[in-house]
């Protein structure tokens, strides 16, 4: 019994790591642009499809190459999306258009997948063999999910604190006007943040494809859970997502275990509403502190 719970918690943390990475990809774009990309879940699923088409049942060498390739491909797609989304914001007084355009891009991506691939879930083989925890077989991709989360957390940390472009993106999120006065190329930095968010979800989607449902309608589930993870951790706080993501994942897995798999999304929705009602700044967000 106890070990069962333990296994569920470990799987929850692994699934939650995916949510955390999506939440971090929200954060970097939101910090630089104040935009929340509703299409991020479908971009993540595109990564899964890339794994299916480019790297199903292949050797490690090709797999690694394809991982990079699909990350770059999806980064390119998200960058184009970002360019389109930012276009009307340049001149218009109406600053809400991104809400509509990112939702419609989300629908377009899902529809294109549906038309070309049909409404099926594709299964992708894992490059990492399954391993045993407490006597239970655990798919290797769960480990990859956690590794990917930690990799992206530290990679972002390094990028945002040590590199010139990363520092400039941080500066943008800390004081937009001062950043413009300093001559930082705002539009280019915003597009770079979109590209990085695409790189993140593209690679993670690729890595965890063996354990998720790679299907055209799965994107919404991930955009929702990624958002909940971001809100729980405190929007803008990447460190917060390291807790927020796994927390949401564990809640979802426990719900599935105790109540039923169909209630997972409901549980996430309840977590979201509770946090927004009682602690809108998130568990770890501090008012006024926008750490990246």
């Amino acid at each position: 019994m106890l070990s069962e719970i333990l296994i569920i918690v470990i799987r929850g943390i692994a699934i939650g790591s995916i949510f955390a990475t999506i939440a971090m990809s929200f954060n970097i774009v939101h910090g630089a642009t104040n935009i929340f990309n509703f299409a991020q879940g479908n971009m993540f699923i595109l990564g899964g499809f890339a794994a299916y088409f480019l790297a199903n049942q292949v050797g490690l060498g090709q797999w690694t190459l394809m991982l990079l390739l699909s990350g770059l491909l999806i980064a390119a797609v998200v960058t184009i999306q970002g360019y389109i989304t930012l276009l009307p914001l340049r001149s218009s007084v109406e600053q809400d258009s991104w809400l509509i355009s990112t939702v419609s891009v989300s629908v377009i991506v899902a529809a294109l997948l549906m038309i070309t691939q049909g409404p099926f879930a594709y299964s992708v083989s894992s490059i990492v063999p399954s391993f045993r925890i407490l006597g239970t077989r655990t798919p290797g991709a769960y480990a990859l999910a956690i590794v990917a989360m930690l990799f992206w957390y530290f990679a972002l940390r390094f990028f945002l604190r040590k590199t010139f472009i990363g520092l400039a993106i941080s500066a943008l999120s800390q004081d937009f006007d001062a950043a413009r006065a300093a001559g930082l190329p705002v539009r280019r930095l915003q597009l770079i943040s979109f590209a990085i968010s695409g790189l993140m979800v593209g690679t993670v989607g690729f890595l965890v494809a063996p354990v998720i449902s790679v299907s055209p309608d799965a994107g919404l589930k991930y955009v929702l859970n990624g958002f909940v993870a971001a809100v729980v951790g405190g929007i803008g706080s990447n460190a917060g997502t390291l807790i927020g993501g796994p927390l949401v994942g564990v809640v979802a897995m426990l719900t599935a275990y105790k109540v039923g798999g169909a209630y997972q999304d409901l549980a996430s929705l309840l977590v979201l509403v509770l946090i927004l009602m009682f602690r809108p700044q998130g568990l770890f967000g501090r008012v006024g502190a926008r750490r990246v």
Partner: peptide, 8 residues
């Protein structure tokens, strides 16, 4: 697809 494209 039409819904999405028309709206965008």
């Amino acid at each position: 697809l039409m819904y999405g494209c028309l709206t965008l």
